[in-house]
Each structure stands twice: as C-alpha cells, then as structure tokens.
Design a protein around this nucleic acid. Structure first.
Lengths: 218, 218
DNA sequence: CTCTAAGTACACTGCACAGTGTAGTGCAAT
DNA sequence: ATTGCACTACACTGTGCAGTGTACTTAGAG
C-alpha cells in the first residue's frame, strides 16, 4: 500500500525498456521519417514486444513527440567561444564547432523531420527555434557584444552580425549537406568568412557605414 | 496503320488529361509529401479516373519523378541583376528578387521534398543543384566579376563572395520559413547585408585582406 | 513461496492505399 | 456507320500498418 512497497519507485525496471524503445524509435524516425517508420520495426529493433511499446506510449504520435523532445534535450552542445584568443581565432573555432554540431546525424535528421512534417506537427517548429538555434548562437552574440563594448570591433547589432556571419558559412558548408549534396572543404570557406567579417567590423571606419543598429523598424 | 492516321499525333487529346494529372499530383506532393499523398486523391483532384492516371504513369514513383522534373523546369526565374544601377541598389534588388523566387510555395515545397525523400530518391539532389541553385546565383557571380574587372569593387572570388552574401541574407530571411518559423522584415536585413558586403569589398584596401581566390583546393 | 507489476507472444481487427482487370462510354477521323 | 483510342466507373487483390485483446511468463519485494 505504501509508496515504497507497492510502486517502489515508479518504473525502475520499466524505465530501461522505455529508453530502449525511445532510442530505437529515434533511429527509425531520423532515418525513415515519421510516415515510413513502422511501430513493428521499432518494437523489434528495441527488443521489446509491440504491446510493451503501446503500454509506454499510447500512440505513434506520442512516441514521436517523446523522441523529438529527447532530441531537443540532447541538442545542448552550444559551442563555446574561446574568448581568450584573438578574434580571428575565436570566430574560426566557434564556426568549426558549430559546423560539427550541426552536421551530427541527429541534428540533420531532426531538421529534415521538422521541415517535412511541419504540417502534421506544427508545434515542432517553435521548439526548434527556442531549444535549438537560440542557445547555439547566443554565445556568439554575447562574444560580439563584448568585443564591441571593449572597442575591439564595431558591432552595432550583434544578432544581425552573427546571423550574417553564420549564414555566410552555412550557405556553403551546411545547407547543401541537408539535401544530400557535396560540401566543399571547411577551412578555406571559414577563413574567408572570418576575414570578411573582421574587415567589415573594424573600428575607426571613415563613414558611410552602420553606426547604429541596422535600422530595425521604429 | 500509318503513323499519321493511326496515332495522328501521339496524344493530342491525352495530353490535356496528362497535364491535369501532373498538376494535381504537384499540389498533392508539395503539400502532403510523397508518402502521404494518395493516388486516389490525386486522380479525384485531377478529375480523372484512377485507371487513366496509371495509363499515363506506370507507378507512383514515376508520377512523382515527372512532377519533380516539371518543377525544375518551372524554376527558371533567375533574378536578373540591374547592373545599370549603383552596386548597392543592384545588390538590393537582386536579393529581393531572389527572396521572392525562393519563397514561392513550389520552391519551398520542392526543397522540403528533396530533403525529406533524399533516401528514397537520391537522384533529386543532383538536379536541384544543377537546375535550381546554379542558374539562380550565376547572374550575381557574373555581376560581381564584372565589378571586379571594372575596378569598382575588389572581389577576388565571385563564387565565394556570392555565397557569403546570399547566405547572410537567407540565414535570417529564408531558412526559418522552411521550418515554419516566422521571418523578420526583409528591408533592414538586406540593407545591412548589402552595407556589410560593400564595406568588405572596397577597393584600395590597405592590406591583410584577400587578394587572391580564397584558396579553394588545387 | 507468493504476490504483483512489467513484459512477451501472437492472433486479430480495421483501414488505407498501390496497383489491376474489365466492361463499357464519348469522340474523333475516315 | 465503323473503327480505334482515350477515358470512365467500379469492383477487386494484396499488403502493410496502427492499434487491441488475451493468455502466459518473468522478476523483484515481502
């Protein structure tokens, strides 16, 4: 009757099976997509009976959402900016770290899922921004703001600058891969982007450049 | 028996039905995805009988490929660069044109399809680059090369510069939309990207900048 | 040993869908 | 009018899959 005798703790043993189901489902959804992944295959791959799967998750949708939620949690690998190094090195390191992060199969698969299923599961999009992109670029924006505050660089709008910088890199080195296309070597592209960024944000610019935030609407 | 009497021309009448089937299939695939679109629904929406659909296309895969091929053809709306205007204006105009092009439902839907189905249909990716992206950015690269040749701007590697420029814009204004996320207003972001680009490619740079192509592999 | 929660094996329902077969209809050209 | 073709209506097969029901087994806690 007591909590300690009847339930011990709610699912110490069941938790293991549950995890293996979620892991198998993750692999299935990431590689096959929502529609093509079958519950029978997931159960088999998890070494569980189909009934057990349905005892943990009432429906395929629920299992899918659990999978995506867990993927978002595992996404927390926000590249740090080595701010003790010179800006060129710091930016280069951050860029490479972010690329490594973005190109993990879980991330590319998740992006493909969100894009493909954003009609059936509109709520996934919102979480993607909040839990994925936001935390990933925040350190860069903070670093740029610090550079600006120290007077090392002129960065009127860190978010805009970060977006420009990362977009320039991802355009060649990340997005093509999402569509199964080949990507060029990282090094030269990143170096070029870093040079362009530093050239564009030097202090002591003569004139004709941005001196305030890039004029977002009033 | 003769070609002129027996066949008249191969399918003058049948061509109309075929087109309406392809159009209905296009709508279905773009909005539902490959797996979720049903042949029954496509036939109904095309005002055709299911048998007619299968008389024109032996399988769902074939219909899908016909749809994608036709989408690639219709993609030929490569934004021109108004090269008679000042660089700032020309780049701004091109950017807005490209964004309009990219955000058409056919394009976003096609990208989602290619990303989602690139396991089942690997061949789609190759065509996407050749028929979609290549033609779209070529005018910009040519324009940048011309600016460099005229000595108006220093653009050592037009492809790299174009990629950096467009990536910076698409990062904020295009990719989020592909995932169902809101995008900010175009104007400020584009203006900012154009300013940054011009600042980074002025002639008469002191030193420490790129003077040759950014070192793509030998 | 005994009780109970969690898991298993497996047969089964219901459905949606790709693809086929067939008998018949509308529409041109000769 | 006749011939031939594209199209239709519709029934039908086969399959794969989400989800359920049930009787049986395992494993830990007292």
């Amino acid at each position: 009757m007591s909590t300690a005798s009847g339930g011990v703790s709610p699912g110490v043993r069941g938790e293991a099976k549950r995890r293996s189901v979620v892991e198998a489902a993750t692999r299935a959804f990431l590689s096959e997509g929502y529609g093509a992944a079958s519950m029978d295959a997931i159960a088999a791959e998890a070494g569980a009976s189909k009934r057990t799967v349905y005892n943990h998750f009432p429906s395929k949708r629920d299992l899918f959402r659990a999978v995506v939620a867990r993927l978002y949690e595992g996404l927390n690998a926000p590249g740090r900016v080595p701010s003790d190094r010179a800006p060129a090195e710091a930016l280069t390191a951050f860029a490479h770290g972010l690329l490594t992060h973005l190109r993990r199969p879980e991330v590319t698969g998740l992006l493909r899922l969100v894009a493909a299923e954003h009609r059936r599961f509109p709520e996934l999009s919102q979480d993607l921004m909040r839990e994925g992109k936001g935390p990933a670029v925040a350190p860069l924006e903070a670093y740029l703001a610090a550079l600006d505050a120290r007077g090392e660089l002129r960065v009127p709008s860190p978010p805009a600058a970060a977006s420009l910088f990362l977009g320039g890199i991802k355009e060649a080195l990340f997005w093509p891969g999402l569509f199964g296309l080949p990507v060029p070597e990282d090094g030269p592209v990143v170096d070029n982007a870093v040079r362009a960024f530093l050239r564009g944000h030097r202090v002591g610019e003569p004139r004709g450049t941005v001196t305030r935030a890039p004029d977002t609407p009033s």
